[in-house]
Design a protein around this nucleic acid. Sequence first.
DNA 1: CATTATTTACAAGTCAAGCTCATTTTGCGA
DNA 2: TCGCAAAATGAGCTTGACTTGTAAATAATG
Lengths: 227, 227
Amino acid sequence: MTAVTRRERVEQKERAILEAAAHAFVESGYDGARMADIAKRAGVAEGTVYLYFKTKTDLMRAFVADFWGDLTQRAEQAVADKGETFEALAALAAMHLQNLIERFDVVELTQSGRVRRGDTPGNREFMKAYVAVFDRIWRRGMDRGELIDTAIHWQARDIFFGSLEYAARTIRLHSDRTQGSVVDNLIETLKQRYAVLPDQKPSTQKSERLLQRLEAAVTRLEKTPNR
Amino acid sequence: MTAVTRRERVEQKERAILEAAAHAFVESGYDGARMADIAKRAGVAEGTVYLYFKTKTDLMRAFVADFWGDLTQRAEQAVADKGETFEALAALAAMHLQNLIERFDVVELTQSGRVRRGDTPGNREFMKAYVAVFDRIWRRGMDRGELIDTAIHWQARDIFFGSLEYAARTIRLHSDRTQGSVVDNLIETLKQRYAVLPDQKPSTQKSERLLQRLEAAVTRLEKTPNR
DNA sequence: CATTATTTACAAGTCAAGCTCATTTTGCGA
DNA sequence: TCGCAAAATGAGCTTGACTTGTAAATAATG
């Protein structure tokens, strides 16, 4: 672990501080976290922390940025092999909901993100890359004609992320409610609203096939002499 | 407005403090607000504030409770004369979105709500009465058969409030995006997913149920060896 | 290697803000 | 007018983020 160059040693220390900060923030929330504790846990004097991060807010920002970076990577992975639009959306939704539930504290940190007036107005920069995963799926769906051309991108996106966030809250509050059905419901909802040929053709085909089968069966039964 | 009884004077002072606090919180956010300023604005010594509200957190809680109480009243009013389910939902959505946009700071205060670990876990109690407005509409819609009977109440609710909140953020960020279309889109989405359709659908649903029944029966028959 | 320069680390100290408490003021009944 | 409890006060206390003067470690130079 012993680094050689100055640069490496500095980076190593920065990571140590960030890690300690992550621990503290998750453990106690933003306000609850003590800079003194973070310093101690990182094996560093309190003043040193301020050489690496100008303020506590900065430290949190770095932590949150890391977090969303991670999520983005995982999201891209989860979506990578999904071809059809709603399949990809379902995969993304499932992953997103999972993460929301598991790490809700961090997500809340992001959003409330120290809103001392005039303090870092654009705190949700981190989410941009994350949200872009959705955007890519959506745009591709439009290009392929799998989505109706009157769909308004950002409204669909707000429904997607908004309802998932609220669902995560609900599920956390009432542990009896399941996540699977939330994703199914959301995707079904989006499908009925935004999919081209929402359901009609397939179901019609299906019922026609079924009718044929029923007819054949009944015909057969009719041929069988009653006893 | 000089009060007479002791009780009245006390209540008047409490209101003055709350009002000053509201001003400070909206102006500067929770962290930015200074107890000293609040005291001064209420025309009271700093120590006095603590006779009425144990902590700063308490003060914010009272403020937020007031806020949601107000909203609830307005929501009930907005919905009162709407008969049909989706008409009522549209009215509620429009009002909610309007409030979210205008007073987003307060709403964010509610949610981030000082999450010092172990500090007042149920901070969103205030919203209960508010959310109940939605619940009433929904339940009535179910009773009247205007909503499909497979609808899961809380999931619909999460879509409703979740997407509105996200839409509010989006609209605040990009002032070019209009609120009217958001409400329309949301209601349309919910309708397509949850409404029992007036003309065709009921019979279709019915025949689909019938088909299922027939299919099951025939499957059973098919398995039975011919006699 | 010795010396100087620069970067990195430290911890004692400053400051601001929430909150406490000993003391004073107020208002009401007798 | 007196007594007394309720209400109010504001000078401190405490805590925690941040500063800063000083020292150690490392690199550059001759």
